[in-house]
Amino acid sequence: MAKIHVETTINGAPTEFLCEANQTLLDVLRDQLGLTGSKEGCGSGDCGACSVTVDGRLVCSCLVLAPEAQGAKVETIEGMAQGDKLHPLQKKFVEMAALQCGICTPGFLIASRALLERNNNPTETEIRYWLAGNLCRCTGYDKIIHAVMEVAAEMRESAK
């Protein structure tokens, strides 16, 4: 069967690729486009390590078919820093030791940014439920939640 031609935008850059109908967006990102920052922890949408946004919506890229990226705007971890400037969440995760091994970190950052874009004043409980689809086995989540709360506070401060 002929491959499907997909035209999409990834981290702001127009991107074309050919894929099989049953290929996942995650596989295309990692294996064809070299964007290996999105991780495969389970392949079943349970761990969130492959989190990306598609047209602003937070998704597990292992559950998105690659052809669905047609005409969409895809944002991955590779697009989060601007030039040599880390996103405030990226900076705060490092400062507050919100990662140990780091395999889940890209997914947590993408998911946390999606939350703060919608709500810059989340309660601790709201953060915990928003991030419940992202598994971390190292940190016990404590420092991750603290980092997101701190960035939210900084965002509110700078919005004043």
Binding site: G37, I77, L99, T105, P106
Partner: peptide
């Protein structure tokens, strides 16, 4: 003290290479 870890930037940008990368 609590300085930033030396591999911090790599791990928050997706640059760090895990085995499948």
């Amino acid at each position: 003290t609590r300085p930033d870890r030396p591999d911090g930037a790599d791990k928050v940008t997706g640059r760090a290479r895990f085995a499948a990368d």
